[in-house]
Nucleic acid binder design. Structure first.
Length: 541
RNA sequence: GGUGGGUUCGUAUAACGGCUAGUACUCAAGAUUUUCAUUCUUGCAAUAGGAGUUCGAUUCUCCUACCCACUACCA
């Protein structure tokens, strides 16, 4: 039998990174078994529908390279019409309405379910009453006998209510005191007694839509799903799902289940939530998302992560190959993944490690590819640079960066001269906090250099490097030697190498740290270096 | 409260019931370098607690503690 797995998100908001991981594991499992990965949209809750969420989900999967075999067409749209490739269309549950009702009725007919006519208010009242008695109300074999349903009402009354009212539901008739024996691919054997379970609503007359439980089982059956790989939050409903398969007579083709551990927040306890990310400086979403209030939530894509790095770090959160390999391409993941090596306990997300992954991917990238990503950033700064020049720059600086967006911070001085020298700079990563200094004289070259990111380094102490005798020696060295001969020249002259070099670096970069002087000279050339020296003398005296 | 799941360095994790509990990230120190970064070396740091089974338990069983999930006409 062909392996068929599905990812079935609900379009109630942006896909969270935990959801992407669930999709990824499904994808890896499918591809490893030569099977299909299906996307199904579970929009059975009309009240929670969020516009744009479905498109977001599809775009996020596309960015990650997790392409559904079924359910989404070439244009990235959810398939609505059946075809050879998408035989089970539509893949949006709201468009499958007509399918579910008959299955709900079938369960009632076979005695596995019943009609319930209790109003929201009466249920609310029961809950409140139970709570004040220190108990929890559950609609179950213990309580269904005193509620308004087809079990307690006469045939005639039931028929009348069915005909004349429109807010009734179909509830599952949970068997009494029965042990459900289940198996999970990750957690092993699990047993639960039904006496603690409630009569879940399966179908709602009000909007003629099933609830998750019914829709999920019916669709997994109809779509011939062989393995259900989903989040741990579903484990408590597994007994119900087993019983539903049994009630429908589908036990023989019931898929196997695997419940994935949760993704937890980096500090403290609890699962990763929407707000954690921006609070702690890392994204929790694959892509940027703007909510209805206009707030933007950060995405990995927009924050500069490569999709390969994102996929890799996600894969390693809750799974490992048992070897010491940590860097995997998507293809390598397909080959190495195994569901029984998925861990049982929740994984705390570690932002440092996430950055490390991106850094590793960045340095594995081809120089030309990175240069192509850097070019638009340079253009945004109004700099027209030669592609080959940029490629050479990138090859030299990529080991110092985590993101492409770091390139400018690291190497701006290769493209434009510094206008400030150290003490007005700021630490890398805090470039936007550069203080303005109104007391300084207007910079004659301001229109060229007026850019906060131009001098992002911190020179701990300009005075340390700016001493008149060293300064003279530096100027002499710059005018007498070139990139290749500078070091020898300084040595021959018997000048203090460190001091002269650091002085030159301050002049050329405005900072106390950075690339090797010879490399910088090689890029900017002797004339520009001397011009910067003149400017430095003018500014620093 | 009830039910279910979980627990190895700060984090992610490794260890047929058997070496001194390994690796990566972070952090610290040192080496290298004209500076910073890289690189290399070294270091810090864990089996939640208690019983039991066993020659031997991180691993199996039970109890306790703690954490998480679920307990909706949400998924």
């Amino acid at each position: 039998m062909k392996t068929r797995v599905r990812f079935a998100p609900s379009p109630t908001g942006p896909l969270h990174m935990g959801g992407v991981r669930t999709a990824l594991y499904n994808y890896l499992y499918a591809k490893q078994h030569g099977g299909d990965f299906i996307l199904r949209i579970e929009d059975t809750d009309s009240h929670r529908f969020v516009p744009g969420a479905e498109e977001y989900i599809i775009e996020a999967l596309r960015w990650c390279g997790i392409t559904p075999d079924e359910g989404v067409d070439e244009n990235g749209k959810v398939v609505e019409q059946a075809s050879e490739r998408h035989p089970h269309a539509p893949y949006r549950q709201s468009q499958r309405r007509s399918i579910y009702r008959k299955y709900a009725e079938q369960l009632v007919a076979s005695g596995h379910a019943y009609y319930a006519f209790d109003s929201a208010e009466s249920l609310e009242k029961e809950r409140a009453a139970a709570e004040s008695a220190g108990e929890t109300f559950i609609y179950s074999c213990a309580t269904r006998g005193k509620m308004r349903n087809s079990l307690t009402l006469s045939k005639e009354e039931t028929a009348r209510l069915l005909r004349e009212t429109s807010d009734w539901t179909v509830r599952f008739k949970m068997p009494e005191d029965t042990v459900v024996k289940m198996d999970d691919l990750i957690r092993g054997h699990i047993e639960v007694n039904t006496s603690t379970l409630d009569d879940k609503v399966l179908w709602k007359r009000a909007d003629e839509l099933p609830t998750y439980h019914l829709a999920n089982i019916v669709d997994d059956h109809l779509m011939e799903i062989t393995e259900v790989i989903r989040g741990e939050e579903w484990l408590p409903s597994l007994p119900l799902h087993y019983l539903l398969y049994e009630a429908f007579g589908w036990s023989g083709t019931r898929p196997r289940f695997a419940h994935l551990p949760l993704l937890l927040k980096p500090v403290g306890n609890g699962k990763l939530s929407k707000r954690d990310g921006d609070k702690m400086g890392f994204p929790v979403f694959p892509l940027n998302w703007v909510n209805s209030e206009g707030e933007t939530y950060h995405g990995y894509r927009e924050d500069g992560y490569f999709p390969e790095a994102f996929v890799n770090l996600l894969a390693m959160l809750g799974w490992n190959p048992g070897t010491e390999q940590e860097l995997f391409s998507l293809q390598e993941l397909v080959e190495s993944f195994s569901i029984d090596k998925v861990s049982k306990s929740g994984a705390k997300f570690n932002p440092d490690k996430a950055r490390w992954f991106n850094k590793e991917y960045l340095r594995m990238k081809d120089d030309a590819e990175l240069a192509a990503l850097f070019m638009p950033i340079l253009e945004g700064k109004g700099i027209k640079a030669d592609a080959d020049f940029v490629r050479r720059v990138v090859s030299l600086i990529k080991e110092r960066a985590t993101f492409v967006s770091d390139f400018w911070t690291i190497a701006s001085y290769l493209f434009i001269a510094p206008s400030e020298f150290g003490k007005y700079g700021v630490k890398p990563g805090a470039a936007s906090e550069k203080p303005a200094d109104a007391s300084r004289p207007a910079d004659p070259r301001a229109k060229v250099y007026d850019d906060a990111a131009t001098f992002p380094f911190l020179a701990k102490d300009v005075d340390k490097f700016w001493k008149s005798e060293i300064c003279e020696a530096a100027q002499d060295a710059l005018s007498s030697a070139d990139a290749a001969t500078l070091e020898d020249y300084i040595r021959e002259k018997g000048l203090p190498m460190g001091k002269v070099m650091n002085c030159i670096r301050l002049v050329l970069t405005g900072a106390s740290s950075g690339l090797g002087i010879a490399d910088i000279l090689g890029f900017i050339g002797k004339d520009e270096a001397l011009a910067r020296m003149e400017y430095a003398k003018q500014r620093l005296g």
